[in-house]
Design a protein around this nucleic acid. Structure first.
Lengths: 203, 203
DNA sequence: GTCTATATCTAGATAGAC
DNA sequence: GTCTATCTAGATATAGAC
């Protein structure tokens, strides 16, 4: 990798400022609800710069935004899974963190990938594919952790599907209900499900 | 109830044709991606009729569309839960049915409530509230079934959160991945989770 | 790479005849 | 209740100077 991504918008290059602003706006307003002019304005870039870096227009921007959301959640996932040997406990901590993030944003910042891809399946295949790749990567990270914790490969990949699906659904449910309860319950129940394979976590 | 809803668009009244068309389009394209003119055209109604029945404009239409999706999924949920005494087995059958519906629509028809509400949290509180009510109703239906199957009230309501969240997330994951696997795994794992409370289902 | 100006189109919404 | 015509504002995207 040649380009290192600065973590604050001020010192980031123009292209990166645009992608990050697009991701943040689409996370809150969805793909169709976000305008390129709004992105360029809030990113502190001109419309010409946006089309300079993204000649494919809005679809290319949406794809880049989904990929950024992919990377960010992959990192968060790894962070929590690496911090705790027991995958069940790590998932409980992760759901608590997701709930906290939602509440702190006044329930506005859900999953950026989900928010961006929903409602685009018809006319934006690049975005849909980028979202599919994100989900697959997250599943692979979870499955890897489960294997490391002693699960059989087949069980781990199978469980990873439900872990990711439940995290997504619970984040959505928490956002809609404006309540930590769905995510909190999801964390406990995923831990219980994992423990049912013979692990040591009791809930 | 005074008005009975006909189940085919041809014999339905204008107002109902509009709501059903709006729900179907927003299910596929999202709220922001669906235009009122497109709705009126595909519903076989004029723009004047749309604004006659929905003077609140697009937001009122979106709210009505979410309520329709609420009713439809409530009915589907009851249908599957009533057909089978064991809630775990009923959920496995339900996930299979959801997966079949997704595949048959070429992965276009996900949850109409989710598709409509995502990306509208900011500027359409009525839609967000209608979606929250839908999720709450579905949870109540699931919790009622679990109580009837012998679960303690607190466990039932707690589990219902995760059942609904996992169904939502798995339907989304299946749609994005264009694969039945996430829904199929969700059904099995929810059954296993329920069985872990001392039930009789083995998976 | 950045900027301004603009072309083209469609959105949501309204007015008023019938 | 239904229809057509229209208003205004915003969208995506492009052109071309700097």
């Amino acid at each position: 990798m040649k380009t290192k991504a600065p973590h604050d918008l001020e010192t980031a290059g123009t292209r990166e400022r645009i992608v990050r602003t697009a991701s943040r706006l689409m996370q809150r307003q969805g793909y169709e609800g976000t305008g390129i002019k709004q992105i360029s304005r809030e990113a502190g870039a001109t419309l010409g710069s946006v089309y300079h870096f993204f000649p494919g227009g809005k679809q290319e921007l949406g794809t880049a935004a989904v990929r950024l959301g992919d990377e960010e959640f992959t990192e968060l996932l790894r962070e929590f899974l690496d911090a705790e040997p027991d995958p069940a406990k790590a998932l409980v901590a992760l759901t608590a963190s997701l709930a906290q993030g939602l509440r702190e944003s006044d329930w506005l910042d859900g999953c950026p990938v989900t928010s961006t891809v929903v409602g685009t399946a018809a006319g934006a295949p690049g975005i849909q594919q980028a979202a599919a790749e994100a989900f697959a990567r997250w599943r692979a990270v979870v499955a890897g952790k489960l294997v490391a914790a002693g699960f059989a490969e087949a069980d781990a990949e199978d469980l990873a599907h439900t872990v990711i699906a439940t995290l997504e659904g619970a984040e959505l449910a928490s956002q809609v209900a404006r309540s930590e309860t769905p995510l909190e319950a999801a964390g406990r129940h995923l831990a219980r499900l994992i423990a049912s394979y013979g692990g040591s976590v009791r809930t």
